[in-house]
Amino acid sequence: MLQDTLKNEQAIIDMKNVGIRYDQGPEILSDITIALKRGSFHFLTGKSGAGKTSLLSMMYLAQKPSRGTLNVFGKNVNFTDRDSLALLRRRIGVVFQDFRLIEHLSAFDNVALPLRVCGMNEKEIRKRVKELLQWVELDKHMLDKTSTLSGGEKQRIAIARAVISRPDILLADEPTGNVDSDIAVKLMKLLVELNKLGTTVVIATHSEKLVNDFAYPRLHLQNGGLSVVMPRESLIRGAKLYD
């Protein structure tokens, strides 16, 4: 999927001195400098209100940094027109903290959304969506309005929607926050699987257990700044490597 111009070792998301503030308020995040390589897997941690969602929303191009430069797929978002940004977004899968499904649509239509916005034909969409809904064990609820589904079911739909277009980047905002640990484990396995297939993954979480169970580097937000914690440290604290 990646353009030839973007070499393997090049950062797929590249932030330099990025700051973000809402309206005239104080900066929530300051001087964030981070380069996420293609195929990498990161946790994003920090207390509630530390700015995890804000950082992710810049990565999935829902908002632009108040200062600094942000390059996604090698393109500076400040110098990219609206339609081109839309094309970039199609290569990014997002699982929102609050799911953000379209409630009046069926499970099928919600999962089909990313394919429809890029104009895929309905036959292909039907095939792909059915397959994925079976995989997340929601094919029984294919035609049900999402407003009638449970929290766990909604979450699975949100995840299905995020991966249906086989994105280059998957950004998940507390994806295990609302599900029991069984599903959480299954979900983590899915994300790890996707990562092995080449997808760059960032998971925001405040679950220490999750971070400790999987030996991936962690981006930690604190006082508006970002620090990188390598997995070695968590291993030392007795975590096991995922397999």
Partner: peptide
């Protein structure tokens, strides 16, 4: 606005 924001993040152009 909510729905449009979702559509945008999924990669919909304004024309969609």
């Amino acid at each position: 606005r909510d729905i449009i924001e979702i559509l945008h993040i999924m990669g919909a152009k304004d024309t969609y």
